[in-house]
Simulated assay, not measured.
Amino acid sequence: MALQELRSSAVTFRRILAHFPEELSLAFAYGSGVFRQAGRGADAQDAMLDFVFTVDDPVDWHSRNLKKNWNHYSFLKVLGPKLISTIQNDYGAGVYYNTLIMCDGRLIKYGVISTRLLVKDLLNWNSLYIAGRLQKPVKILAMNENVILRSALDRNLTSAVTAAFLMLPESFSEEELFLEIAGLSYAGDFRMVIGEDKTKVLNIVKPNVAHFRELYGSILQENPQVVYKAQQGRLEIDKSPEGQFTQLMTLPKTLQQRINKIMDPPGKNRDVEETLFQLAHDPDCGEVVRLGLAAIVRPSSMKQSTKGIFTAGVKKSLIYSSLKLHRMWRGWLRETS
């Protein structure tokens, strides 16, 4: 990206952020409006900009935002900030989205999540919704000095590498690794059947290998279980049962629990460590990990999408869904042409 383009983007982001209350522990932009994606033509420059705002006190933040941006909200705004925050925290993946907003001449969508819930998702992968977004390159726009949040962000990336290792062969390329990582939060997502371009993960990774390398390079260099040949873009990992058991034991808690539920026969009630030890010796270890990921992502994505109908309003939801279906159709045409 040219220097002039970078400066223009920085100005755009600053001007958009100025429309919102400042009390943000983390703000980032993501998606095709920020990072180039394969298959997106001239429309990419005018693509909707996607943001996530992390806030310590959702009630206070929504209260301030309702005063500044009343028209951003659906009919739920009449319920007030307390109920909006309850809907945000207690349903779906813990994030409240306002979508199809015109802000400073650009179409935007923004999600609001509490710092507490984000940290839990980053560490445990309770929903892998925003944690999954943060496993791919994003543009950090604001971040306060929250040591716990910063540590959780790093842990999420390390966990993504570990999960991907378990689903890969002994030797693989950087691109294969990044494809697995980018696909973690789409495992079992019903939107990949209806609503998303089937080549979405490939389109995210192909033009952004350098950004993924920047995000994961130091983690790969410091991991004792991998031989990282950065010059050749190749990696080799320990696929012994001992090596896989070590990796399985460091996976986020929710994924371990889902794996245990998949593998534990009725009436056995084995503990997680016993199940993971057995799985480490199983040739289908990677596929079980993939099933565990799907068991996290499928319900959270469905609940969050259902919640989106109410937070966006029916009209905006229909427009947003039609845009997604249009992109899916174009992706299908590219595949079959």
Rank of each mutant, 00 (worst) to 15 (best):
L248W: 01
E287M: 10
L276S: 05
M249R: 14
L255D: 02
E287K: 15
I296W: 00
G243F: 10
S305A: 12
K268F: 12
I259T: 02
S300W: 01
T254H: 11
M249Y: 04
K239F: 04
G243A: 06
L255C: 04
S305K: 06
S301C: 07
Q256C: 13
K307M: 07
K239T: 14
I259L: 07
E274Y: 05
M263T: 01
P265C: 09
K253G: 01
S240F: 07
D238S: 11
I259S: 03
E273I: 10
G243T: 09
Q244N: 15
R290C: 06
Q256V: 03
K253L: 13
P299H: 07
D264R: 01
N269L: 10
T311H: 06
R290L: 05
L251A: 04
M302C: 01
F277E: 11
G267E: 08
P265L: 14
V289Y: 07
L276M: 11
P265Y: 09
G313R: 06
L279D: 00
H281P: 01
F277R: 15
L251M: 15
G243K: 10
D284S: 12
I262T: 12
K268V: 13
N260F: 03
T275E: 04
V314S: 09
E287Q: 14
T254I: 05
I237N: 02
I259R: 02
K307P: 04
I262F: 03
A280H: 02
L251G: 02
R258A: 12
G292R: 05
D271P: 03
